[in-house]
């Protein structure tokens, strides 16, 4: 089973996320990441979800999502050319000794330090899942205290 990125343009109203998420969960798909936010048109929001699912079952689900009255359009990006990013914040345990090392690693990943305390750092960076996994893997020995991720956002390339 492959990972799919679904992108839905929906009405910016209460209950719409529940309808979309319910359609996925009712079919037993685990939503791996989920992002919702308004678009340049305040009436509309974009929902981006990544799910690992059987191709045919997901196709049925996408068609069913397209049928929802609150969904303007929906697409499985897997079949098209698209760009995707995710923003991650990681709180990492640090000491006087390890702080500079962590900063060095963060630099390599073009991550930013957005908070420094005596015993921890908060690092922010964006990337695709592979880059995120690589960074978390490298930073792991220092001690990851907390992670927060936005979930993937994506758009098709070109017009």
């Amino acid at each position: 089973m492959k990972k799919h990125t679904l992108s839905a343009l929906v009405e910016n109203k209460f209950g719409v996320l529940a309808r979309v998420a319910g359609m996925l969960s009712g079919r037993g798909f685990n939503i791996e990441t989920l992002n919702v936010g308004p678009t340049h048109d305040p009436q509309l929001s974009r929902i981006t979800a990544t799910v690992v699912a059987d191709e045919a079952a997901l196709d049925r689900c996408v068609r069913a999502l397209g049928k929802l009255v609150s969904v303007i359009s929906v697409q499985d990006f897997t079949t098209v050319d698209y760009v995707a990013r995710e923003l991650v914040m990681v709180k990492i345990q640090s000491t006087k000794e390890t702080r500079s090392e962590i900063i060095e690693v963060a630099d390599i990943f073009r991550a930013k330090i957005i908070d420094v305390a005596h015993t921890s750092l908060v690092v922010e960076f964006t990337g695709n899942d592979r880059k995120i996994a690589a960074f978390l893997n490298i930073i792991e020995p220092y001690g990851i205290l907390e992670v927060a991720r936005t979930g993937q956002v994506a758009l098709t390339r070109g017009h």
Binding site: F14, G15, A18, R19, G22, M23, G26, L68, V69, S70
Partner: peptide, 14 residues
């Protein structure tokens, strides 16, 4: 009720 009926309606309003 809005939540309860989500998967069994064509649409719903509160």
């Amino acid at each position: 009720f809005f939540g309860i009926t989500l998967p069994i309606v064509k649409h719903s309003f509160l």
